[in-house]
Design a protein around this nucleic acid. Structure first.
Lengths: 328, 328
DNA sequence: CCAGGCAATGTTTACGTAAACATGCACTGG
DNA sequence: CCAGTGCATGTTTACGTAAACATTGCCTGG
C-alpha cells in the first residue's frame, strides 16, 4: 500500500480511501491511485483488513460429509447467497458424525477466520458438543428442530410428509406404508411422525414402519419385504434414493408401479424424473433454505439478535408417474 | 492475549508460545497459561495471526455450481484432506460458467484470505479469464487437461473410457455406441476420444456419436433414438445419470437390458447400484483426486515449485448387471 | 566458589490496514 | 478584504500476534 501511495504521489490513507470506494477523493487523484494499483499489482491484504475491521466477511459452514443431496444444494445456495452479500464461505467438514469429531470442528472453528456460523446437521450432536461456540459468533442451524434454542431454517418436513400421505389417500388407497430414514435423523423422525399423524387423523390403520438409512440399497432391501405385503398398495419413502431402490425391488418381484403399488418420494432430486417410472415426490427448495440461512445469520450479526425461532420453507408435490389410483 | 498474560502472571510472548505449542516453557507455566486461557475464553485472533505469519492456512476452491456428483465428492475430499493438514477451505462459487463470472471470482479471490487455489473447472474458462491470479498464489486444477501450463490432477478419463469400450467388445459386441457429455466439457471430450480410438484400434466401425448434457433427461431423449437403432447392442454413456435416462427409454421401448442392449456408465454414483438393472460402470476415485489436489498444492507452496504436469487417478470397472454377452 | 552457559521468560518491534484526528487550501459572505 | 467554512488530503495510532533480540536466574564444572 505504501508503494502504491508513493507511486501515485499520495498518502497511504488516500490509497485506502480509493481501495474502499470512500468519498472525498478527487476524480483525478482516484484515477492516479487506481493506475498505480494496477501497475504494481496491488491487492489489499485481507488479514490486515480483517484485523483492522474486526470482521472477516466470512461465514463458516459446519456440515457432515456432503453425501446427501440436500446438504449439498443447501451449501451451494449458502455459498452463492453469501457471495452476493460480499461474504466468503469457509467449509468445516466433520468427517464422521461422532461427538469427538464435532468437538474438534468446533474448537477449530474457534480460531477460524469466521464471523458467523451456519450449522447443517442434526441438532443433538450440536447439543451434546462439549466445546461451545465462541461467544459473539452468531449461529443459524439448518436441518433441525431446535427453534427454541437456536435460529433454525428448515424445510417444512411435516407439511411435505402430510401432503405425500394425503395424495395417496386421495387416490383411493386404504392406507400408506412408510419407508423411513434412520432413527438418528430428525428429518426422518418428523416425516415419520407426520405420516403417522396424517393417517390417524384420517382414521386409517397405521402399518408397521419400515426403516432404511437413506441409501438406495436400504430402499431395495425394504422393497423386497414390502413386495410380499399383499395389502401394501401405497408407499411413502422418506427420500428419493430409497424410492429408487424400492422401485427396483418391486420390479424384481413383479409388482407393477403404479398399477399394483404407488410410490411417492421426498426431495425431488434431479434424477427422480428419470426413475422407472418417473417418481412422484415432494420437492424441497434447498436453495431457499440456504438463502434464508445466510440472510438470517447476517441480520443477526447486524442486530445482535438473540431471539430464536424456526423458519419453515414450504414443499411442493411433484406429480409424476409412480402414483396412481388404487386398483381393486 | 494481554489479558491472559496478566491473569497468568506472564508475558504475552509466553502466552504465544503456549498457544503455538512451542518448546521452552515450563510445565507449570504452561498449565497456568492454559488455565488463564480457559478462564477468559481466549481464542487466538486468526486475522492477527495471518497478518503476522503471512499465511492464512486456508485454501480457496473455485468451482461451478456443485451440480455434478464428481465436483461434490472432490470438494468433500479436498475439505477433509485440507483439514488434516490444518488448512481450512474457502468456497468460491461461480454461479454461471460465463467469462464475466469467472473473472469476478478471480478478482474476489485476489483479496480473499487464501494461500493457494484449487480450481475445479473446465480449463478453457480459466485460460480465457482476463483477470489473472495474484502472483505467488499456487494453483492446482482438477478436471482438466492442461498439464503443460498448470499442475493438474484428474481421473484417467481415457483409461476408463477405454476399459468401458473393451469390456463391451470382450462381451462379443460388434461395436459400441457412445452417449457423450456436452461439447464444452473436456472430460466428455476425452471420454469420447478414447471411445473412438479404442474402436478404431480394434478395427471396429465407429457409430455416430450421440450427445447429451450429463442430465438423466438428456439420456432419456438419446435413449429413445438409440432404441430405434436395430444394430445398437452396446452403449457406453459418459456418466451414470445419462445411463439412468437411457435405461428408462430402452425399457419404455421394450429393449431389454442387458439381453438386447448392454449399457455401461461412468462415475459409479452410489445410486447406480440400484438402477434397473444395476449399472455396470467405471468407478472414479474422486476422494483420491481431492486428496492429491491438496497434497499437490501444499507441496507446491512449500517448494515454490513451478513445474507443471498431470497426475492421473486410475479408474476401476465395476461389473453389475447392465452388461452382458451379445445375443445373436 | 565463581565464570560460563543455557534454559526460561520478558521486551521490542513490525506485519498492512483504516479510524480518528490534523492540516492546508480555496472559496464564500459580510 | 478577511474570518469562517468545508472539502481534499496527510499524520498518527491501534488492531493482536509472533519473530528477533534481551534479560534473568540457575546449574555445571574447573
Amino acid at each position: 500500500m505504501a508503494d502504491v501511495a508513493q507511486l501515485a504521489g499520495v498518502s497511504s490513507q488516500t490509497v485506502s480511501r480509493v481501495s474502499n470506494g470512500f468519498p472525498g477523493v478527487t476524480e483525478d487523484t482516484r484515477a492516479q491511485v487506481l493506475a498505480a494499483m494496477r501497475e504494481l499489482g496491488y491487492r489489499p491484504n485481507s488479514a490486515a483488513r480483517a484485523l483492522r475491521r474486526g470482521e472477516f466477511r466470512t461465514l463458516g459452514v459446519i456440515t457432515f460429509s456432503l453425501s446427501t443431496m440436500g446438504n449439498i444444494r443447501t451449501l451451494e445456495a449458502i455459498a452463492t447467497s453469501a457471495a452476493e452479500h460480499g461474504y466468503a464461505v469457509t467449509l468445516l467438514p466433520v468427517a464422521v458424525p461422532t461427538q469427538d469429531e464435532v468437538n474438534g470442528a468446533f474448537s477449530r472453528l474457534g480460531e477460524l477466520a469466521v464471523d458467523a456460523v451456519i450449522v447443517i446437521m442434526e441438532i443433538h450432536l450440536l447439543d451434546a458438543a462439549t466445546v461451545s461456540l465462541p461467544p459473539g459468533v452468531q449461529v443459524v442451524v439448518a436441518d433441525s428442530d431446535a427453534g427454541d434454542r437456536y435460529t433454525v431454517v428448515d424445510t417444512d418436513q411435516a407439511g411435505g410428509a402430510r401432503d405425500a400421505v394425503r395424495h395417496l389417500l386421495d387416490l383411493g388407497h386404504d392406507t400408506v406404508w412408510h419407508l423411513a430414514g434412520p432413527e438418528g435423523s430428525f428429518a426422518a423422525q418428523r416425516r415419520a411422525n407426520a405420516w403417522r399423524d396424517t393417517l390417524t387423523a384420517a382414521g386409517r390403520v397405521t402399518p408397521p414402519l419400515v426403516r432404511g438409512d437413506w441409501s438406495a440399497e436400504s430402499g431395495y432391501r425394504a422393497g423386497l419385504r414390502l413386495a410380499d405385503e399383499a395389502d401394501c398398495t401405497a408407499v411413502f419413502t422418506a427420500n428419493d434414493q430409497m424410492a429408487l431402490g424400492l422401485l427396483r425391488a418391486l420390479h424384481e418381484r413383479g409388482r407393477r408401479v403404479p398399477d399394483d403399488v404407488s410410490v411417492i418420494g421426498f426431495d425431488d432430486i434431479p434424477e427422480s424424473a428419470s426413475f422407472l417410472p418417473p417418481l412422484t415426490t415432494i420437492h424441497q427448495d434447498f436453495a431457499e433454505v440456504g438463502r434464508l440461512c445466510v440472510e438470517g445469520v447476517l441480520s443477526k450479526m447486524r442486530e445482535g439478535g438473540a431471539e430464536h425461532g424456526t423458519t419453515l420453507v414450504p414443499t411442493r408435490l411433484v406429480r409424476r408417474e409412480s402414483t396412481g389410483a388404487r386398483r381393486r
